[in-house]
Design a protein around this nucleic acid. Structure first.
Lengths: 121, 121
DNA sequence: GATGTATATGAAGATGTATTCATATATCGG
DNA sequence: CCGATATATGAATACATCTTCATATACATC
């Protein structure tokens, strides 16, 4: 009935009320959409894509990641913090070194789907 | 042999030369990585996620999209241009109206994988 | 405890992005 | 041709993000 109300409102205001009404009903809640966008935002940076791609193959320590990606250690640390906070990577400390790895397989799937997508240009 | 050279360089500079060497060899070319990151960057905005989610279900005209998402028409147009330029959506003109839809199924797959991912929190 | 090394963090500047407002273009009905 | 409508675009502002530098922490070795 909430939906019917929205339809009534649409009826007055919009171009194709039924379609608009349907589409509104199908929309994910705002908070969920924001979560999804935040996830993709984290993946939307070349440095982080490189890091994730590396970690998809093997666990690696910070200084080695920096060596492979060829950017400063500080920068890598900052990016790893973002990736940690997003739950995409986990790490364990061993002495003074920190070993990072992917936190789950979803990330790898998203990455490879994204990579696959760019081949079809 | 290029790879061997890189390994020699690693030998002098880095912590775990073999690992670094291997990881470097496996890395995607920079340009490719940037394309992937750009793709995800486009997906990394709540407004665009909403638009894409809507278009994943049905073709829709600009003013209806604006009505569903409940943001200004100008904003929608700007976002649609970005989505067009990234090849994620296509459109056809019919009179004074423009009907937008997803350009391929990859986008929808990426989206739903991303959405699925955020449920596992 | 002093020194060196691996990693993390804070602050700052530069750059990028989202959103809004005003306006342009193009099409339709009269 | 004129006003109305749908969409697109440019400019400006506010805000977020990336990167770098300097420095802090924490561990290891001597």
């Amino acid at each position: 009935m909430k939906q019917q109300q929205e339809c009534d409102i649409c009826e007055e205001l919009c171009e194709h009320p039924q379609t608009i009404c349907l589409a509104k009903a199908e929309m994910l809640p705002d908070q969920r959409v924001r979560k999804v966008a935040d996830l993709f935002k984290i993946l939307g940076d070349a440095t982080r894509v490189k890091i994730l791609q590396i970690l998809a193959k093997r666990e690696m320590c910070v200084c080695d990641i920096a060596a492979v990606v060829e950017i400063g250690q500080s920068n890598i640390s900052h990016q790893l913090r973002l990736l940690r906070n997003s739950g995409l990577v986990k790490f364990r400390k061993e002495g003074q070194m920190a070993w990072y790895s992917l936190n789950n397989d979803y990330v790898a799937m998203l990455l490879s789907l994204g990579i696959e997508h760019t081949t079809h240009d």
